[in-house]
């Protein structure tokens, strides 16, 4: 496969100038739809049946006792505790942030989620509660979830969230542009948002690139979108907004884990993966961790490199954690819930 054989100076892993690095990786003098197409379409195809069979087989791993306890804590620490509703209020966000600090008041050894994930305008309310606790704040931006806005609006959305104190930005790609084959446009948008993540002090918010895999439909598209996102400077590749079904399936995540694994082999740069949407149970979360372990490798078993975008998953993980701690089944009355349904 030509892509993986491309020898690259690790120094080119710098994302200071994604376009320059991309030209180097592709071995072209100009980055165009044509050159990007040639490169992305040279990636090995994905056989849907084989990929799903592999995912299903990873899902049959039986994780018990000490391994289960370890995995539950790891999963909790990987959650981007999320609320992304039109009805979000400062109160709701404060409650969620508080929950992140103390996921189980009955057991203070319970780890905190990695981050809370909110709309940009809610960042200040999250920061009020989280301060410098180490729980990060992720903000969705770029006209989330549809991405249908002009570039200036998307960039303003991003800068606004960063300025408000977001540690991480979750952007959406223009799926329409991707499906139309306008890869250069998608690349440019990601690169521009990445630039907008820069803070005055020279540091940057980490950028998660949401591909909305449910709208890309095929695994070949997921693989190509993953590589395009990584090429353009994304720090994380993320499955979904949570607003489209299907969202984070295990096979889609498997394809993305293969992408970051292979990307590191090509560039030496390690990037993160975030499945988001639809992961609600501990059992599901553990299947994803097994996939991380066996497909990308144990180096990814850290919340710097893997996240779950989820709202209700934390509750089930706490339930299971209590089950292991007390040796009996727990119930929802024993799990504080700061994000119950409004309806």
């Amino acid at each position: 496969m030509t892509v993986l054989d491309t020898a690259v100076d690790p120094a080119a892993g710098s994302t200071e100038d994604p376009a320059a690095r991309a030209r180097d990786l592709l071995g072209v003098s100009r980055l165009t739809d044509t050159s990007l197409t040639r490169w992305l379409h040279a990636l090995p195809g994905v056989d849907q049946v084989g990929a799903e069979a592999r995912a299903a087989s990873l899902g049959t791993r039986s994780i018990k006792t000490t391994s289960k306890a370890w995995a539950i804590d790891l999963a909790i620490s990987m959650i981007d505790l999320t609320t992304l509703e039109g009805a979000d209020t400062p109160g709701k966000v404060r409650g969620l942030a508080t929950r992140a600090l103390t996921p189980d008041p009955a057991d203070l050894t319970t780890p905190s989620p990695a981050a809370v994930c909110v709309y940009g305008d809610m960042v200040p309310f999250a920061r009020e509660v989280l301060g410098h606790s180490g729980v990060r704040i992720a903000a969705v931006a770029t006209a989330f979830p549809s991405g249908r806005a002009s570039m200036p609006v998307k960039l303003a959305d991003t800068r606004d969230a960063v300025a408000a104190g977001a540690d991480e930005i979750d952007m959406v790609i223009d799926r329409g542009a991707f499906l139309a084959g306008h890869y250069r446009q998608v690349f440019d948008e990601i690169a521009a948002v990445k630039a907008a993540c820069r803070r005055p002090d020279g540091t940057s918010a980490r950028l998660k690139v949401i591909m909305e895999t449910g709208e890309l439909v095929t695994y070949d598209n997921v693989r190509r979108a993953s590589w395009l996102s990584m090429l353009a400077g994304g720090d994380f590749i993320k499955t979904s907004t949570g607003k489209i079904s299907p969202a984070a399936t295990l096979p889609v995540t498997l394809i993305m884990l293969e992408a970051v694994r292979d990307w590191r082999e090509v560039t030496g740069q390690q990037l993160g993966v975030k499945p988001a949407g639809g992961i609600r149970t501990s059992k599901d979360a553990i299947k994803f961790l097994v996939a991380v372990n066996e497909v990308a490798g144990p180096e990814w078993l850290d919340n710097h490199w893997f996240r779950f975008g989820a709202s209700s998953l934390l509750n089930d993980l706490i339930l299971q954690r209590q089950r292991l701690a007390i040796g009996a089944y727990s119930g929802s009355d024993y799990v504080p819930d700061d994000a119950p349904s409004l309806y």
Partner: peptide, 10 residues
Amino acid sequence: MPTFDYAPAP
């Protein structure tokens, strides 16, 4: 690096 050892599941 953390290790994800699968405990025996007989």
